[in-house]
Design a protein around this nucleic acid. Structure first.
Lengths: 149, 149
DNA sequence: TTGCGTGCAAAGGTTTTGCATGGCA
DNA sequence: TGCCATGCAAAACCTTTGCACGCAA
């Protein structure tokens, strides 16, 4: 479960440490690159992609894309369960991490009543966050969405 | 809620019909293009993208991407009143429509406790359906995911 | 007639691929 | 020493944007 990568190289270790350090946050391949650059260690972009792809196959990270936006997001899977859900505001683009017992119960409910095992780390709830709703939920957020990203 | 599109053009109608004809299946912008080409009616790719984007804003279609694969998938949302949630199996790709009081309560809960208004028609729960789970849910779908897509 | 919608092509960004080099075993 | 991993650059890919023309109103 650890030897698929063949050789144990410096880059491999660096990338894995970097991913692990992100915890529950998500990150892009490019961010990993920048992060390593900042640490004084440069790693080729292609190498980062190759390792993330491998880690994905190994189950060490999860991959999904927010809103189909170009630029996939990865998230460290850390072996253990990161069982919170994500709320994505379709107006301002903000991503909220939500964790509470009700959402936990949702998983159980769907699993036993609907015979479906939800993968929390891949599931994103789309909707409108409180801020945007307060400011303007009348139909046209327009400007600020773009501005935020 | 229907007049954002301004003029009623032939292309607009064609694209909407095409999307509606897909029913619950998913399709890419490119597939719409090809489909129209096959029907003898050519529509520019940019136009398809522009209309899908607009239909997305209107809620007429849903947009999501399978596993971050390049190429976003769209799905016809069937105009109105589709207030149930969708369960998408990441192994076999099946899409399940789920409706029950628990899921309704989920919306209320998230709205009042997390200050977030979920848009049910845009939200998709990713996970593993019972059938696929029966085959292999032992912990590592890994390899077969790849194989299936 | 006015102005939006369309189509083509080019730009934009992310991800993948090819190939020579360097490092692990 | 052999072979895999790396890095650079170019390619491939999907999507968006700019601009001139055509069509709906």
């Amino acid at each position: 479960m650890e030897s698929q990568s063949g050789y144990k190289t410096k880059q491999k270790e660096l990338i894995e440490q970097c991913a692990a350090k992100m915890g529950a946050s998500h990150f892009t391949a490019d961010e990993i690159c920048e992060m390593l650059d900042t640490c004084g260690t440069h790693v080729g972009k292609a190498t980062v992609y190759r390792h993330l792809e491998r880690m994905l196959a190994e189950g060490a990270v999860r991959k999904y894309s927010i809103d189909g936006k170009s630029g996939a997001c990865y998230q460290y899977a850390g072996g253990a369960a990161c069982e919170h859900f994500h709320l994505k505001c379709t107006l301002c683009g903000k991503l909220i991490h939500a964790q509470c017992s009700f959402l936990d119960r949702l998983s159980s409910h769907v699993e036993y009543e609907h015979n479906f095992k939800i993968d929390g780390s891949r599931t994103v709830f789309y909707g409108v966050c409180g801020e945007c709703a307060g400011v303007d939920i009348s139909g046209k957020p327009a400007c600020r969405c773009k501005a935020h990203l």
